[in-house]
Amino acid sequence: MTTIDVPDPGADRLTDLRRGLAERADAAGLLDLAYRTVDAPIGSCLVVVGPEGLLRLAFEVEDHASVLEDLAEVVSPRILADRRRTDQVARELDEYFAGARRDFEVPVDLGLSRGFRRTVLDELRNVGYGSTISYAALAESAGNPKAVRVVGSACASNPVPIVVPCHRVVRSDGTTGAYRGGSEAKVALLAMEADASR
């Protein structure tokens, strides 16, 4: 068969083109969700930023591709890799993991969480760096002492872990309990914060 010898763009050119596209899409108001991955000591984390702020942070153990596919269904398929819109959260995470940041300032959008679970996550934002709270105590401060199990599921389904610190919620007997990023990651985060608070 006849072929026409038109060259391929090559990987570097495509990388530049995709960066330029994300900028143009953002300027045109067509970039609903911007993402990047951040290298962290607990593995690579996916961060997804929407118009209102950080919408999702996913651990390496969650499949990043399927997280993006879910967001395309639930929020918007207008998703591109973009460094600019994800710059603040990436920088703050780097600082946090270097022990140089205790509070996150990046705007957070808890839109993926609803009802009492959302209330629990809002309440959780007041639990400071290096401290912990029990599931029972968090249920109480969220206004429903009996809803300990719902508090557990609110933490398990926290769309923005680390930034909304569900790793600081532990069992009443002092053991750490489950974590979306794996219990090892939870132990590591608590140890890091305890170290830096000393």
């Binding site: 763009p9 495509l14 083109l17 995709r18 596209l21 993402y35 993006l68 596919e69 967001l71 395309a72 269904e73 398929p77 207008r78 998703i79 591109l80 890799a81």
Partner: peptide
């Protein structure tokens, strides 16, 4: 399903 647009760019760029 509606796929993330980024995948289209990656596959057909």
């Amino acid at each position: 399903t509606v796929r993330p647009f980024d995948l289209l760019v990656a596959e057909h760029g």
